[in-house]
């Protein structure tokens, strides 16, 4: 269904729309919370319970990675944060208010980039800023766009179309577009899965740099344990589906800023890594993974 039909109203400014008082006054633990969340899909072969009994509290500014075998319900979980799905049971709430539909306070970096092919790199980012931050003057908007393109090293490619640039560059545009909106929550669904190792590492570093600067709350799905250990404050490990839930949450204690060299020398790195591998490939081993 086209978007225009279900939201005929004017744009809602992202962070400002939600009363800030609740965030500052109340305990910070309630920033993003999942309370008894379940998701049941109605399929042709009857109801299919993808997720059950998800309970999770996320702090403001926290970086969370979600790991689990494919098909366990990671995308489903994050779609309830971005608002593309509403829970069948329980509640997902941001700053105390239930999440009901997508909005620019919860920007998404989609798995397949989702750039508009008829717009240049710069126009793609501009469109997002213009839509989500209508209060910015044209000058301020241009500055925001330029700053974010610079953060992902895309100033030189700003006038190119998505078809003319590489996959890594496209994902950079998608990240710049999402963060230029200055969202409270950033949702990334396997953003670097299709990239080669070097590009992947560059993008991880760029993502961390922007995150350090703006401190959005990040929820990111990944298949890569090293990536999760490098990026995350906590790693959420999912059990297998159907009826998947959170199996275990791993605290990642390394100081920031991090680099692969320093954290890999830390003795805890190996322990955490083995623990995660043990969870995924022994306790919740999966035939096709």
């Amino acid at each position: 269904m086209p978007a225009m039909l279900d939201n005929g109203t004017t744009n809602v400014s992202p962070a400002g729309a939600v009363p800030a008082a609740t965030a500052t006054g109340a305990a910070p633990e309630a920033f993003l919370s999942f309370d008894g969340v379940g998701q049941v899909f109605q399929t042709r072969r009857g109801p299919f319970e993808a997720l059950r009994d998800i309970n999770l509290q996320v702090q403001q500014g926290e970086f969370l990675c979600v790991i689990g075998h494919s098909g366990c319900g990671k995308s489903t979980l994050l779609n309830m944060v971005s608002g593309f799905l509403t829970p069948s049971s329980g509640r997902v709430s941001l700053r105390g208010a239930p999440i009901e539909r997508p909005g620019p306070d919860r920007m998404v970096v989609f798995q397949n980039y989702s750039l508009l092919p008829w717009k240049t790199v710069q126009q793609n980012v501009e469109l997002a800023v213009k839509a989500a931050r209508p209060e910015l003057s044209p000058g301020a908007r241009a500055q925001v766009v330029e700053h974010h393109l610079e953060m992902v090293h895309l100033l030189d490619a700003r006038h190119q179309k998505p078809a003319q640039i590489s996959g890594g560059m496209r994902q950079r545009v998608a990240i710049a577009r999402a963060l230029a909106v200055n969202p409270a929550v950033l949702v990334l669904d396997e953003p670097f899965g299709a990239l080669d190792a070097i590009t992947k590492e560059e993008l991880q570093e760029e993502l961390l740099a922007i995150w350090q600067e703006q401190r959005p709350t990040v929820l990111m799905i990944t298949h890569d344990i090293d990536e999760a250990l490098f990026l995350a404050d906590r790693i959420v490990m999912m059990t297998n589906g159907p009826s998947a839930t959170i199996g275990e949450i791993l605290e990642v204690p390394f100081d920031r800023p991090r680099s692969y060299e320093t954290i890999q020398q830390d003795p805890r790195y190996g322990q955490l890594r083995n623990h995660a591998l043990d969870f995924l490939f022994r306790r919740y081993a999966h035939d096709d993974d």
Binding site: N11, P104, L116, L127, A131
Partner: peptide, 27 residues
């Protein structure tokens, strides 16, 4: 046949009607 990807972008950004038509639907 407008790809779901583009309508998802429009939904996240809550594009207004005019912008949706001009920036996504027509192209």
């Amino acid at each position: 046949e407008i790809p779901q990807d583009y309508t998802n972008v429009a939904r996240v950004l809550r594009l207004g009607k005019r912008s949706y038509v001009r920036d996504i639907l027509l192209p």
